[in-house]
């Protein structure tokens, strides 16, 4: 399998660009409907959230399937999540607000769905910034892992952002919420199972303290 990883990465890299290409092409060709700017902002937000959840699915998939090479694709998926959210934010700042900073500040403070979206974005920045080998070495594995656990609250905030922006019909945000709950729930269950295994297997391990061999001397 490992031989194919570089090729797989190239393929995945291009595949992840497809939603952007579709949106860009649609915008250019005017096939995004009556309100193309809204469609663009929403499309980018949707794909930001999609990639966030895809990234969160890597670990459960790996554990269930035993395909450890999946982890080697995780960084790219996470960075794509950030990339789409960044474009989503840009589309909001530019095409929705035309960089009128007072209005933007008011929006962030006054509209709960924007507030929580912005918070999610701000928390994503350090994760994106430390998604490289140099940062991992500098921080050390443990610190790095701790930092990157903020992706869990980020996921929750992103789903809240979606839930709060719809007027009445929360079907789609609910589906995202359930998916997220399954992905996070898996981790809790898995950890619980590991603990049980450890406890259950305790007597098989070497006991602590001095061991006095009870062997009769001849």
């Amino acid at each position: 399998m490992h031989r194919f990883i570089p090729a797989l990465k190239v393929l995945l890299f291009l595949l992840c660009l497809a939603p952007l290409a579709r949106l860009g092409w649609g915008f250019q060709q005017d096939t995004l409907g009556a309100n193309p700017i809204e469609a663009l902002t929403r499309g980018l937000g949707t794909w930001g959230l999609n990639f966030l959840l895809i990234t969160l699915a890597v670990t459960p998939l790996r554990k269930l399937s035993g395909w450890h090479w999946l982890t080697r694709l995780r960084r790219m998926l996470g960075l794509y999540a950030f990339f789409y959210v960044l474009l989503h934010l840009t589309s909001y700042l530019w095409l929705d607000q035309f960089f009128v900073w007072q209005d933007i500040a008011k929006d962030i403070l006054k509209r709960p769905f924007i507030t929580v979206g912005m918070a999610a974005f701000v928390l994503l920045v350090p994760l994106a910034a430390t998604s490289n080998n140099y940062a991992i070495r500098r921080l050390g594995g443990k610190k790095w892992t701790q930092l990157h656990r903020t992706v869990y609250p980020i996921g929750i905030m992103a789903v809240l952002h979606y839930t709060w922006l719809v007027k009445l019909d929360v079907t789609k945000p609910l589906l995202y919420g359930l998916t997220l709950a399954a992905l996070l729930g898996f981790r809790v269950l898995w950890r619980y199972r590991e603990k049980q295994k450890q406890l259950g297997g305790a007597y098989l391990r070497k006991p602590k303290g001095r061991i006095i061999p009870i062997v009769a001397k001849r």
Binding site: A34, D103, R111
Partner: peptide, 19 residues
Amino acid sequence: VDHPRWSQARERRLGEFTK
């Protein structure tokens, strides 16, 4: 008077770029 979840100060006329 803003809607609690968004501003009503401006609008996008369909087919126009700026609000």
